[in-house]
Each structure stands twice: as structure tokens, then as C-alpha cells.
Simulated scan of single mutants.
Amino acid sequence: MAEGQHWSREEVEACVADYMRMLTMELNGQRYSKTGHARALLAQLDGRSRPSVEFKHCNISAVMVALGYPYIDGYKPRGNFQSLLLDVVESHLQANVALQEAAQAAVLRPAVAATPGDASSIWVPPPRPQRISEERAAYAPRFSAARRDYLAQESRNRSLGRAGELFVAELETRRLHSAGRKRLAERVEHVAATKGDGLGYDILSFEDDGRERLIEVKTTAFGELTPFYVTRNELARSEADADQYHLYRLFDFRDHPRLFDLPGSISVRCQLEPVSYLARLAG
């Protein structure tokens, strides 16, 4: 079969099943070989190359995120996936109790405060989501029994959130110390803990010249392209104080904490999607 031809349902089924096995092991903390999995999978496919399989795994990651699941580290989500792929992933997820249990345990797992290492290995540039077209998907909002709220549950994991905030507070203190601003370093404050979480940011820090830096920390144990949740209050604060506001996205927190900075208004730096509403009785 020519590499450019459409994937058959049998090929998609094999690729999705392999992805689900790897993701379940990853969420459970088990080691596995992507190379070994790719080699075994290629033997089931009709003349596909490894880059083609990896591309398909990245498409699966995009579907997983759309359905509220974490994705495999190293297979960054790529959009514009086949509608067939969505159907197959949904079917596999509904029957995969082991993966559901692994995802549930992963998002609820407590976290402890971590000590930042070398700042040069922690900071990374903001990633650019990849949208390389494979086949334009006829995808529209749909009711799906496979949809879960695992990523939303992780965003409510207070232990993980607090650990991430403490990590950033220490990182900011070190940054100001290194800049020779010891007094400013001593004034870095974890305001989410000392004053409450209604300010629209978590950490009060400072620029080298003494101007305030308002930092909102969003922490995940998963990859850098994992979507995150912001409140209306955080959004409003980022717009009112755009010249001072910074959203720090901290990812891979349990294994290798890294972060990137999204300064300014959140609505400018992120694509926002309304996912819930506060409802009051009409009238």
C-alpha cells in the first residue's frame, strides 16, 4: 500500500489499541519501549512507516485531549484527525476499564513540594500547537459516552496545585537573589495561601526594577500541551493588570518539572472555550 493512502479501519484499530496500552502503562508508572511497541505495530500494518505511525499517535493524542483524557508524553497532539479515528478511540475508551482506572488514579494522586533545580533546565519557550493536516475531520460538538473530566479533576487537585505554587515561589525567590535583589526576594509572597485565592493570581513577585509581577500558576503532571482551566476572576485580573500579569504553565511536574511563561492577558495568549456555567433559577 502507498504511504499516502487512507488508513483502513483495521489499521486504525491496531494503532489505537497500541496507544491505549502504552498510555495505561505510563499512567501507572510502568516503563515501556516506544521503539518496541512501534516495531510490533508496524508488523500489523500495510506498508506504513514509523513516522506515519508516530503521526497517527499524535492524532490520537489530540482525540484524547478532546475527550478529557491525558495523552502520552512524547506524542504531542496534532489536530485535523480522521472522523474514523474519533469513532475508534471512543469505542476503545468505553470498554477500557484499566485505562479509566489508571487515569482516575493519576489525576487524584497527591503531590509534594519539589525543590527547583537549575533554572536553565526548567524554563522552556511556550509550545506551538501543531496542526498539520492529515485529513480534514468532520468534527463538531457531539454527545459522547467516552468523554471524561480527568483533566478537570486534575485541575482541582489541591495538593498538586499547592506543590506547583510553592515550586514557583521558590523559583522566583532564587531569580531575584541571583539578580542581586535580596530585599525583593524576601518579599515574594504565596498570596493564594496568605490572603486567599480570590485575587486572580497565586504568587506576588517582582521585576528586577521593583515593579510587581502577578503570577498565576497552572500545574499539571502531564505534557506541555495539556489544556488548563482558568476562572473568570483570573481572566479579568489578567486583563486589568496585563502589564504585570504572568501565567506560568508548569508541566511534567512529577517527573521533570518545566514551565513556560504566558505574560499579559490570558485571552490574548490562549484560545478560550466556555465549558461550564453558573446557573440560577430564572425569574
Rank of each mutant, 00 (worst) to 15 (best):
E3G: 12
G4E: 07
Q5F: 10
Q5C: 10
W7G: 07
V12T: 15
V12C: 10
V16T: 06
A17P: 00
L23Y: 08
T24E: 15
M25G: 14
L27M: 15
G29T: 05
G29R: 05
Y32H: 15
T35F: 02
H37F: 08
A40E: 14
L41H: 03
G47D: 12
S49T: 14
S49N: 00
R50K: 15
P51L: 06
P51I: 11
S52W: 03
F55W: 02
F55G: 13
F55A: 14
N59L: 04
M64V: 04
G68R: 08
G68K: 02
P70G: 12
D73C: 00
G74M: 09
R78S: 07
Q82H: 13
S83Q: 13
L84C: 04
L84F: 08
L85G: 06
L86K: 12
D87I: 04
V88D: 08
S91G: 06
N96L: 03
V97C: 06
V97L: 14
E101F: 00
A102R: 11
A105E: 11
V107G: 02
R109M: 10
A114P: 02
G117Y: 09
A119Q: 09
S120Q: 14
S121M: 10
V124F: 01
P125C: 01
P125F: 01
P127N: 11
R128A: 12
R131P: 00
R136A: 05
A137G: 15
A138V: 10
Y139H: 08
Y139S: 13
A140H: 14
A140D: 05
A140G: 03
F143M: 09
Q153F: 09
S155D: 10
N157V: 07
R158E: 15
G161I: 01
E165T: 03
F167Q: 03
E170A: 15
R175E: 09
H177G: 00
A179H: 07
A179R: 10
G180R: 05
R181G: 01
R183W: 11
L184Y: 07
A185W: 03
A185P: 06
R187M: 14
A192Q: 00
A193G: 01
A193R: 06
T194C: 05
T194I: 08
G196D: 02
L199Y: 06
Y201F: 15
D202E: 07
L204N: 04
S205G: 12
S205W: 01
D208M: 09
G210R: 10
L214Y: 09
I215G: 07
V217A: 12
V217E: 09
T219Y: 05
T220L: 11
A221G: 05
F222Q: 09
G223L: 13
L225C: 09
N233S: 10
R237G: 01
S238E: 11
S238N: 11
E239A: 02
E239L: 00
A240T: 08
A242K: 09
Q244E: 11
Q244F: 06
L247Y: 05
Y248Q: 00
R249H: 09
F251R: 03
D252V: 01
H256C: 08
L262W: 00
P263W: 02
G264V: 04
G264D: 12
G264W: 07
I266Q: 01
S267V: 10
S267C: 03
V268L: 10
V268D: 14
R269T: 05
R269H: 06
C270K: 04
L272V: 15
V275P: 03
L281S: 04
A282D: 12
